[in-house]
Design a protein around this nucleic acid. Structure first.
Lengths: 209, 209
DNA sequence: AGTTTGAGTGTACGTATGTACACCCAAAGC
DNA sequence: GCTTTGGGTGTACATACGTACACTCAAACT
């Protein structure tokens, strides 16, 4: 018998976490907009009305999950940045990091990918905003790389938007392929090739326009 | 008084259409998985049980809408193909065609974009399959263009997947920007730049690997 | 003309939904 | 020690849900 007398805030935090986790589980095969407060409560093991002690609506629950998801996503981006930027290796590193993070944070990625297109309006807006922030971060990173000296800020932004789009699509494909190692490898290989194509296009860009 | 005595199949087809249209309207601010048969019936103006005369479930309704949506999408792709392939103009043509088709078939695009990520399993699978077909079609088109003679079929497939991904993302952005002409222009301009970057990358590809 | 067919109706059910309200009781604060 | 606070409970209700079943009635078939 582990007699851990919990403090009040600890207990509250624990059920809050349980609600977030339960929602991620339930969202694996549905979506926030098709999720009822009662389903969540049942999954958590609390009575429906207790839900309101933590969130005022499913929508605000969703916003909390968006914040949480992007915390781990930013951790991933920091991982990518930590490695030194040799042009060839940066691609392998980035894709590998993406694959492993999607696997580790499967539920969060799935949540983001799904609610980005189908969630409540405020949730969709929040995700769009976060992705836009990521694009800007990537743009400033790209600006530090050799060969981008002559680029305009606008073109850098456009390029990073293209890269983020491709990586989001790759994350989606990994989620579909998860559990089938050969399919996962194929997705990763394709992502690497696409990134290289984009980089080559970028390196030859200014000389063209 | 227009006394058009309808034939029986005409009448059936008319309510079937009404159901499809009503669903597209209701899906504009929600999703198939959050849609009830009764909502659809009410919107159409029939009694709930009458729904079953046309579809056996919301899911099969969704599959019908997927088919329908991709008919118009393929019409768009035919439009793109009709124009002669000068490398510079092909980009402008394609993006313009995309923008105008998304505007004209707004509901269908919105439906596809949303249900692709959040719809019932079978619907998601159907959409993935259709997009994969589009990628392959694009790949065979690309193979006919000058400069791709030395390409492997795999690389062509990878390239067209990248292009389709970018165009899907562009369609999403147009849907968000719709009604704000300046935002629409910005999205179109960005899509053009991205397509050019990709093409430049592609043209310099074989010499790299 | 008489019969069959089938889209659409109306009623009826068990179940799930969001939320209001009064309640409990242990940790927190005095 | 007594009071306050607040997470969690239980009951209750109006509403919405999917679907079963028995029905109508005009077009279609014979």
């Amino acid at each position: 018998m582990t007699e851990t007398t919990e403090t009040r805030v600890e207990r509250k935090e624990r059920t809050r976490r349980a609600i977030l986790d339960a929602t991620l589980v339930l969202c694996e095969e549905s979506s926030l907009v098709a999720l009822s407060l009662r389903q969540v409560a049942k999954q958590v093991g609390i009575v429906p009305t207790a839900f309101y002690r933590h969130f005022e609506s499913i929508e605000s629950l969703g916003l909390a999950l968006v914040d949480e998801s992007f915390v781990s996503l930013r951790a991933m981006l920091r991982d990518v940045r930590r490695h030194d930027p040799t042009y060839r290796d940066i691609v392998d590193q980035s894709v590998d990091t993406l694959v492993s993070h999607v696997r580790k944070e499967r539920q969060h990625f799935q949540f983001i990918v799904r609610e980005r297109a189908a969630g409540p309006l405020a949730v969709r807006a929040a995700i769009r905003h976060q992705i836009e922030l990521s694009e800007r971060e990537l743009a400033t990173d790209l600006a530090r790389l050799p060969g981008t000296d002559t680029w305009s800020p606008e073109d850098l932004q456009v390029l990073s938007s293209l890269i983020v789009t491709a990586m989001v699509a790759t994350a989606e494909d990994i989620l579909v392929a998860v559990g089938r190692p050969d399919a996962e490898k194929a997705v990763a290989e394709r992502a690497r090739t696409q990134l290289r194509m984009v980089i080559i296009g970028a390196l030859n860009w200014r000389s063209e326009s």
